[in-house]
Design a protein around this nucleic acid. Structure first.
Lengths: 166, 166
DNA sequence: AGCTTCCTTCAGAAAGTTGTGAAGTTAAGG
DNA sequence: CCTTAACTTCACAACTTTCTGAAGGAAGCT
């Protein structure tokens, strides 16, 4: 009876489910919608990082429609990729570490929109006012962050490559 | 008639309002609740970075209750600070660039919770499995980010100090 | 001390969001 | 070519969130 006890040799479905819900909850708090968060967490904890629609619906007790909505969001934001096993109509969803690290740190589009909004603001306040100064500094800050994030991810890739190569 | 035309010498209340709503919208998209976002944007665009409750309610067309809720959130998250002019019951809210840069980049608490959740997950999957490997790398990534963000903000402060000192 | 002004809290109405069932679409497989 | 399995879309119901008006409380001013 090696698998009946809590020998920790085998995957404990219940403990995995607890993790999935816990981590999904954190992601939800951080702003991600609930279903995408749960699907993402389930994929992260899955054995090979791949699950089918049916497996997801089954594990999370949600309808096919909910799975569909969640994976659409996740693949649009590049947190997971969809695959189709050739000669099957079963779709598979995969989480790939390299991909989703990039996805969550790629705030470039967001930062650009913010910068653009701030420039609007600079045009609206009185020239030379403290408000203008404040907004200019804010703009500089966002520009700084944008560059820094890019460099940070390059450092991460280097670190990963070094670790894998060793 | 210098102020009647669009000479851009004066603050254009309507243009400022457009900026406030635009930027607040971006913040809302990024996950911030609407009222806090609007209040924050209004403070950013205000002349001295200070507004009273009444001014905020007036400018944004919202009830005192809404102002109250918004500033409670904003001061809890250190995006604005509250002041009380001595000998007045009028409260004033101030946005201070240095403070809120730190606030929005300080994701330490969040990252810690994520790390802790991931550790749970590592305990739940089969030792030696790809799932374990994936979760361990994820944990490393979050630890990396935590350090990097700290260093990034130090670089920002240095840059600011250098610019101000010059 | 009492009045007044301002802020906060709270219950509830209005608005928004989410997930489901059911119908529709696509493509494999006999 | 028809059947059938799988995914998607859509309308709606349940649930949440949000903002307001009204009542309550704190602190200055006379």
């Amino acid at each position: 009876m090696t698998e009946a006890g809590s020998s920790a040799k085998e995957r404990d479905a219940e403990a995995v489910s607890r993790f999935v819900e816990l981590f999904a909850g954190q992601l939800t708090d951080a702003g991600m919608a609930r279903m995408p968060a749960r699907v993402f967490a389930a994929l992260l904890a899955s054995d090979d990082g791949v699950l089918t629609s049916a497996e997801l619906g089954d594990q999370l007790r949600i309808s096919p429609a909910a799975v569909s909505g969640a994976v659409r969001y996740l693949s649009q934001t590049h947190l997971v990729s969809r695959e189709r096993e050739p000669g099957s109509r079963r779709e598979r969803y995969r989480v790939h570490n390299d991909q989703w690290y990039e996805a969550i740190t790629n705030r470039e589009a967001l930062l650009r929109r913010w910068q653009s909004a701030i420039r609007e603001g600079i045009g609206a306040v009185s020239p030379g006012s403290p408000a203008e100064h404040r907004l200019r500094e804010t703009l500089e800050f966002f520009e700084f962050i944008e560059v820094e994030l890019t460099e940070m991810m390059q450092r991460w890739r280097d670190k990963r490559d070094a670790a894998d190569g060793a």
